[in-house]
């Protein structure tokens, strides 16, 4: 029986705006197990990113129940959510969002600093070698290609040994070759390192390479 990393029970996210309410995510049930490779797909506005934000504890659900590694984080405040993110989760974003003034290795060490782990430079170099960037340690992000930047972001996300890697449109700004390289890396991390990966994408060619595909429509799970 595989460990449950994230269990979402009828979680919802409703945004209250003047004069209206927008339900970005409605009553979604979802279990993510250790070793899963899941892609979340759907048209624009279907709630993919919001669902990822909820799973990733970047925001709180307005309805339902969410547990991460057995901890109930429903309605938790930011100070609680940040601890959960630190301990169990890693993030990769479409725009890479590396710190421009830090080198490749410094961007990776930053992750260790925030998660209160020892800033072991050798460990950072090993991870960068794993993602194929051992030759770029002292480069600044501006000196890297899009694909290379994304691999730094992945290294930054996995160096803290998270249980779950969450990637929001990680190939959105990459060409097809680089996109496939990134997906291959996800697969490698999933198969060889046992890391659970959840990827939001609207590219079916890539999304269908995942072990499980979840489709959303209008904030709900599609049939």
């Amino acid at each position: 029986m595989k460990d449950v990393i994230v269990r979402a029970e009828k979680i919802s996210k409703i945004y209250k705006l003047p004069g209206e309410q927008i339900a970005a995510v409605k009553d979604i049930d979802l279990d993510i197990y250790a070793g899963d490779f899941i892609s979340i797909m759907g048209p624009s506005g279907s709630g993919k990113t919001t669902l990822l934000d909820l799973i990733g504890c970047l925001t709180s659900a307005t309805g339902g129940r969410l547990t991460v590694m057995g901890r109930d984080v429903s309605g938790a405040g930011e100070s609680c959510l940040v601890k959960v993110r630190r301990q169990f989760l890693g993030f990769v974003f479409q725009d890479f969002l590396l710190i421009p003034s830090l080198t490749v290795v410094e961007n990776v060490l930053l992750s260790l600093y925030f998660s209160r782990q020892h800033q072991d430079k050798k460990r950072a170099i090993n991870v960068l070698n794993l993602v194929g960037l051992g030759q770029r340690l002292n480069h600044l992000p501006a000196q890297l290609s899009g694909g290379e930047k994304q691999r730094v972001a992945i290294a930054r996300a996995i160096i803290t040994n998270p249980k779950l890697l969450l990637a929001d449109e990680p190939t959105g700004n990459l060409d097809s070759r680089a996109s496939q390289e990134v997906f291959d890396l996800f697969k490698q991390l999933n198969e060889k390192e046992g890391l659970a990966v959840v990827v939001v994408t609207h590219n079916p060619e890539l999304g269908n390479q995942a072990g499980r595909v979840i489709k959303l429509k209008d904030g709900r799970l599609a049939a």
């Binding site: 940040v82 969002l97 710190i99 930053l110 925030f114 209160r116 803290t160």
Partner: peptide, 16 residues
Amino acid sequence: TREIGVMKALGASSFD
């Protein structure tokens, strides 16, 4: 702003 958001995603507390 976005970098600060990422730092928080990486585990930075408000005090960090």
